[in-house]
Design a protein around this nucleic acid. Structure first.
Lengths: 218, 218
DNA sequence: GCCATCAGTTTACGGCATACGCGAAGCAGT
DNA sequence: ACTGCTTCGCGTATGCCGTAAACTGATGGC
């Protein structure tokens, strides 16, 4: 005999399914089967599937790690990398159509940590918020890119022969700058994973430099 | 008698539907009805729905505008704002689950323009590419945020009372930094549209400052 | 003992992407 | 001109989806 459903158990089961079979396999009936109940049973605890997905993302994100001293910049790097790592543990979070202003509990907690790091920079409150959002989208889009390349078979195939693909696409000379990069070997060799990682770091450093410039002015 | 289908006509019809009724209304049968044919007729010109969506996004993006002189920074601002404007004309592009490395023709053309602007900065090729991707995701995520807030009814309702919502969510004192911003009135009043716009500009300026710092080093 | 409330099931509906198959139209070889 | 074969253009049919609605059986307060 099952010990009775609960919101927690439902979300947990959905996360299990997503981790094991991908977000596209998360249907109400699939999650229900995981719990050995009928599909409609889930609607006792969740109003709609979208709500379930939002909850899934929030629990996958989890609470931020305990703060680890340092200046604002070190703190932000720490948080950004921690968040990236969390999301990469549950790659499907990147595919979930969840946008909009931060509202779920864990999302807000992460935001709070970021704002704490920015507290003594001299930036005004609106600027602090914008910086936080900027960092958050950098993390999320970085994860999304890494994930689509690794999961989606079409994208993966494309990524594998990306250099060749671009070589062919630019053969007619109408995209001289792209061709320039191809000839420079920017897309050649090297594991895609690593490339995604360095791209993320690069973007992060640029953003932090930009914030740093503003901090210096204030 | 219809003049016969073609890939062009199919994509065009799909874009019409998306513009008029949103991306979620774009189903094969809906597009087919628009063209007064049966659903399966579309599959003569398109292998799968995802392919159709990708083509839709590409045509909605369109070709970049003619270049308008100036230094690298002015050029990048120009391109970023032009792209944002294009995407906002077809808000559904932001909701399309299209990620992965740039591969569609127009996407590559925009990339080419951005790389052209970065040509004489002294950055190496990989750095130029990373900068281009960074800018591109900034534009896309900015549009995505603006769009979800304006389209999605739940998100819109939340955005309307966002300040109140956060006030309640932080009442227990566990999110002191977020509460700080709420009390500072960061989320109060002001049209959301405008806020989205200034957030986009802010992020763009930060990124460009960050790139500028790197350029100065090189 | 009665009845409201809960927790979960069964059934059903409309919409979706798309596998499959069928007739018609081109086209080759004779 | 006739035959066989391929390719096109499209309708029908299938199986899955989210979820509305009506049901059943258990639980617990009065």
């Amino acid at each position: 005999m099952k010990k009775g459903l609960s919101l927690e158990r439902v979300v947990e089961a959905a996360v299990e399914v997503a981790d094991a079979e991908g977000l596209e396999s998360v249907s109400m009936s699939r999650v229900a089967k995981q719990l050995d109940v009928s599909a409609m049973a889930l609607y006792r605890h969740v109003a709609t599937k979208d709500e379930l997905v939002a909850l899934m993302v929030d629990t996958a994100l989890g609470a931020p790690p305990p703060p680890a001293g340092g200046g604002w910049r070190e703190s932000l790097v720490y948080l950004a990398e921690a968040m990236r790592a969390r999301l990469l543990e549950h790659p499907w979070t990147a595919l979930a159509p969840v946008t909009g202003p931060p509202s779920s509990p864990n999302q807000l907690t992460w935001l709070d940590r970021v704002l704490h790091a920015l507290r003594d920079t001299g930036l005004d409150e609106a600027e602090q918020l914008f910086c936080a959002l900027l960092l958050s989208t950098q993390v999320q889009s970085g994860v999304a890119l890494a994930v689509t390349v690794n999961r989606n078979p079409a994208a993966a195939a494309l990524a594998a022969g990306y250099s060749d693909f671009l070589d062919r696409a630019t053969a007619d000379g109408r995209l001289p700058e792209v061709r320039r990069l191809v000839r420079a070997g920017v897309f050649a060799g090297a594991e895609m994973d690593m490339s995604m990682e360095t791209e993320f770091r690069f973007g992060l450093e640029r953003i932090l430099d930009g914030i740093g410039a503003l901090v210096r002015v204030r």
